[in-house]
Nucleic acid binder design. Structure first.
Lengths: 201, 201
DNA sequence: CGGCGCATGTAACTTGTTACATGATTCC
DNA sequence: GGAATCATGTAACAAGTTACATGCGCCG
């Protein structure tokens, strides 16, 4: 169907924004997986840079199957629990490839803590310090986890050709969390000084 | 109306997620502003950690006025261009304060570039390097801008009590962008080595 | 035999983006 | 007089979250 208008003003946008499908395609491109598996993997391995919910995964799996980009793998014996395991198709591999070859979009972020800090003169400094120290703690925890992941990955670098790429993502996690922790420490220091100054006057 | 059920299963969620309203409240708490002004300020001052669009600002302004959290400022002479300028009310100040006193939520982020890198073994290394160098360039640019902002802010630190807080947000921007740039350089180096290794074998 | 984890899914909602419509005013 | 920018807004999407419903199987 060429040049069909469908009388929809908004047809113009052919830029795919839905990234969920590519996460799924990427994951099933490595091995057949169920929706449940996919969720677990994202929770474990992507935690620090990506998140999805069942509310997106299951409908997307259905859509992908409908489009022929993935297909159900027939499960063997009847004794097993019901599981819908999907594998990628050639068309799916093609779709994934096309997306991977598209330059990544600039990521838009929203840092609630910065917003609160921006309006910092409206909150007591102690409160801000509390936010910052829990922020620091969170990121320090993530930092420790990532350090373990790094060590583990380095030990099995030659076991799969994608391990090196995973390690690269971990490096950013390390850098960013390091930056968060350092920043929080500096700001807490600044706030302490500010508070002392205010109390003296 | 106490304890009314309204027969809606989903009434339970009373946790406010809509942050747009607080950005608006925060900004008009400093000075009366129009929707247009608010958009411009967010574009300029919040660019690196927050974004909004007219599609959210205008409807939210209407809602806030409806709830009595902001009010229209009568514009003087009739010669001027039509402008709806809003000021914060006491109720609005209260609402803003309540939100500021709530601990910030953990920010969920999605780094498309990490997702692509994660599946890096499916893309040619040259392509990845291109993504990374444009990523590097973007963040380096932001870094330069933030350095200017930093210098500027330091010069006018005593002119308003919130300048110090704004500076603190800038510091995070500096740290993060520095981390991005350094990381990109390291990864590009790793990819070069990888490529050389592959070509030799 | 009870509870935890496996497993799949949907309905209702909130949030955010994009394209479009419309017109006034300022400045060159 | 025409371009840029000021200025406000909406309709139609797309995307993402949350709460709920449901049931099986495995392990202690």
């Amino acid at each position: 169907m060429y040049l069909s208008d469908t009388s929809n003003r908004y047809m113009v946008m052919n830029i795919k924004k839905n990234k969920t499908r590519y996460v799924i395609l990427g994951l099933v491109s490595e091995e057949p997986l169920s929706g449940y598996d996919i969720n677990k993997i994202i929770q474990m391995r992507f935690k620090f840079f990506w998140q999805e919910s069942y509310g997106q995964i299951y409908p997307e799996l259905a859509r992908l199957e409908n489009e022929g980009l993935i297909s159900l793998v027939p499960q063997d014996t009847e004794t097993k629990r019901a599981r819908n395991v999907y594998q990628i198709t050639d068309a799916g591999r093609e779709e994934l490839r096309n997306w991977l070859l598209l330059p990544p979009e600039k990521e838009a972020r929203r840092y609630e803590i910065l917003l609160k800090l921006y309006f910092g003169n409206l909150i007591p400094d102690e409160q801000l310090m509390q936010y910052l120290s829990s922020f620091r703690q969170n990121h320090d925890q993530e930092l420790q986890i990532l350090k373990e992941v790094e060590a583990e990955l380095k030990g099995i670098l030659d076991q799969h050709e994608n391990h090196i790429y995973i390690l690269m993502t971990v490096y950013l996690g390390l850098k960013l969390n390091q930056a968060y922790v350092e920043w929080a420490d500096e700001i807490i220091g600044m706030l302490k000084k500010l508070k002392d100054g205010k109390e003296k006057s």
